[in-house]
Design a protein around this nucleic acid. Structure first.
Length: 612
DNA sequence: CGATGGTGTCATGAA
DNA sequence: AGTTCATGACACCAT
């Protein structure tokens, strides 16, 4: 590759560049003719010849390099190349198909509007890099803008070049991509598969030439932030710089006009430092701060995105996740994280030292400092207002206080905070919708969400106010211990009120549970009692009926006995007494009398009364 | 869409 | 007087 570059002569490079530009211009108009057609054509022919020669050379070089690479393996951790006994077949195979398509790439890049598929193809073509045609072109452009960097080409032995892999590809898209295409590119880049593919290819093609730094004059738009940087460096360092610069410029270009001059200067200033350490990790480390700065200064989330993207792209598979984050819409993740961390160093409250900074922020802003002085009743007011802040802050906290939740650290929360600050009590939209992040746990299952959120609500509030006790302690501690605990800490009014309310609610909740439990137990008991009473009733009824039966039987027996006794009675004449005219009665002393029936008393009440 | 059940909370009174 | 407990009532949510 180096040889490639060395082969290039300024004049030829110019020609290449012009040719490239011309190719591009064809789509726009007849600039070519205006430009001096004959001369151009001659040069073009010469160029073609040179290019062919160069291609041949490049082929040879590449083959040599491949042979070299086959013996070298990139250590992903150190970014160094280490001797590798057997060449890895997968890598080569992966590269090969891409190489095939490379010829197409340049022509398509010239198109004003690339279809998504084209983008894909372009991508595929772009990142394999090490191919001849592309390389040549890129080199040409590079040569024009960076004559001094003609020896940019890396030797396989030079590690730390992973970023370079992207160089050829990114440029074209950045130069003429429409916003849609840019987005498409971003999406493409955010595809894990692609990222992996890219990473692999990067690894594979680290040694390849193509580092089309600052490209054509056209390209020298502000987007190519690192162009100056590349100029600053020479020789080997140059090669190192080139890669990152390339990437950055590429992605900056994808979002032109987004990068403020300040950022550019910052990037430029940082560029030289990059030379020193360009390991993959160092790369990320270097660029993240930049992203933060950009994000903080300009509110364009894309900037941070881009820078992070740039940093990510060269990274190897281990960094892919970060890529995805950085590429995610809004791109505020990283920046937001950094900002929050910077702004909220006070997360050492002990409660939530590891909790996300957001925890402190909303809490502080809304309640913690007491400026709002939300009494619990206020909170409750919100709670019961189905459109108010309750779920908002509760859910927000539920998110915020999840220390490990990366999403909770993201910028959307900051937005939430702001929103809450604006409308603490009113307009509670569904935070899950509002926050557009980490919705998964909540959006899907309302039931879950509610239970998840309502239960720890007081906990969230306590954290919000930085109350140094656990809700469990607040609720369950005996009065004395509770008072002692409270006396040991200096709590402001809001905190005291919240603690009291938490304790009250907690105890009342338990009481209500007990009450309901008792109520249910009472109901069950009463139901049991009812059953037993019914059984008793049945038993008594049956007993009663039995008694009636027995009584009847006894009466019958008595009657029989009575008649029997009458039948045995005789008067003086030896006649029997009629039971209808007389009855037997027993006196208190046990003696039995034969008493005439009342109806006949007029006749013989005196005469017939006679002891038996 | 209304009925029903579960749960948290508040208000109130009693201990 | 302050706290705790018990309970009716209400609101919200899920089934």
């Amino acid at each position: 590759m180096m040889m490639e570059m060395e082969v290039m002569h300024p004049g030829q490079q110019d020609m290449d560049l012009i040719d490239i530009l011309w190719k591009q211009d064809i789509d726009l108009g007849a600039r070519r003719e205006v430009f001096d057609y004959n001369h151009r054509q001659k040069e073009h022919e010469l160029q073609r010849q040179r290019e062919q020669e160069e291609e041949k050379k490049l082929h040879l070089l590449q083959e040599q390099e491949k042979a070299l690479l086959a013996q070298l393996q990139l250590d992903e951790e150190t970014g160094e190349y280490i001797p590798r006994p057997p060449p890895s077949a997968p890598l080569q195979s992966a590269v090969t198909p891409l190489e095939v398509t490379q010829n197409v790439s340049f022509a398509e890049e010239n198109g004003d509007a690339l279809s998504f598929d084209e983008c894909l193809q372009l991508l595929a073509e772009t990142f394999p890099v090490e191919e001849t045609e592309n390389t040549t072109v890129c080199l040409d452009t590079t040569a024009v803008s960076l004559p001094s960097s003609s020896n940019i080409m890396m030797s396989p032995e030079q590690p730390a070049l992973p970023p370079a892999t992207l160089s050829p590809g990114p440029l074209p898209p950045s130069q003429r991509m429409s916003p849609d295409l840019e987005q498409a590119w971003m999406e493409l880049l955010s595809l894990p598969e692609l990222q992996q593919c890219l990473s692999m290819q990067m690894e594979d093609t680290l040694e390849t030439t193509t580092y089309p730094l600052a490209n054509s004059p056209e390209v020298q738009s502000p987007n190519f932030t690192f162009y100056p940087m590349t100029n600053l460096t020479d020789g080997e360092t140059n090669s190192l710089n080139v890669c990152p610069a390339e990437f950055i410029s590429t992605f900056d270009a994808s979002v032109p006009s987004m990068a403020p001059p300040d950022n550019l200067s910052q990037m430029e200033a940082k560029a030289p430092q990059l030379n020193t350490n360009f390991g993959a990790e160092g790369f990320c480390d270097i660029f993240y701060p930049t992203a933060v700065l950009e994000d903080s200064s300009g509110q364009h989330g894309l900037e941070g995105n881009e820078s992070t993207t740039v940093s990510d792209i060269p990274s190897k598979p281990p960094f892919i996740p970060m890529d995805l984050y950085s590429l995610s819409p809004g791109g505020a993740f990283d920046s937001g994280k950094h900002n929050l961390t910077a702004e909220m160093p006070d997360s050492d409250s002990g409660i939530s030292s590891n909790t996300s900074p957001n925890a402190s922020s909303p809490a502080k802003s809304a309640y913690g400092d007491g400026s709002f002085g939300y009494s619990d009743s206020d909170m409750e007011e919100m709670d019961h207002n189905p459109g108010s802040a309750e779920s908002e802050y509760s859910e927000m906290f539920s998110l915020n206080f999840q220390p490990d939740d990366p999403v909770s650290d993201s910028a959307p929360i900051g937005q939430q905070q702001r929103q809450q600050g604006k409308k603490p009590k009113h307009h509670r939209t569904d935070p899950s919708e509002e926050s557009g992040h980490n919705n998964a746990p909540f959006t899907k299952d309302k039931q879950k969400r509610r239970s998840d959120l309502r239960l720890p609500r007081d906990e969230q509030r306590a954290k919000a106010l930085k109350i140094p006790f656990t809700v469990d302690m607040i609720i369950n501690l005996p009065v004395d211990d509770f008072n002692e605990m409270m006396s040991k800490h200096q709590l402001n009014e809001a905190q005291l009120a919240l603690v009291r309310d938490i304790r009250r609610r907690g105890k009342n909740k338990v009481a209500a549970q007990n009450c309901r439990k008792r109520k249910m137990e009472n109901i069950v008991g009463l139901e049991g009692e009812l059953d037993s009473l019914k059984e008793e009733r049945e038993r008594l009824l049956s007993e009663k009926s039995q008694n009636i039966t027995d009584l009847k039987e006894m009466k019958q027996q008595l009657n029989s006995l009575y008649l029997e006794v009458f039948s045995m009675l005789r008067d003086e004449k030896g006649n029997t007494y009629s039971p209808s005219d007389y009855s037997l009665q027993q006196s208190t002393d046990g003696s039995i009398f034969l008493v005439p029936r009342i109806k006949k008393t007029f006749k013989s009440e005196d005469n017939h009364l006679s002891p038996l």
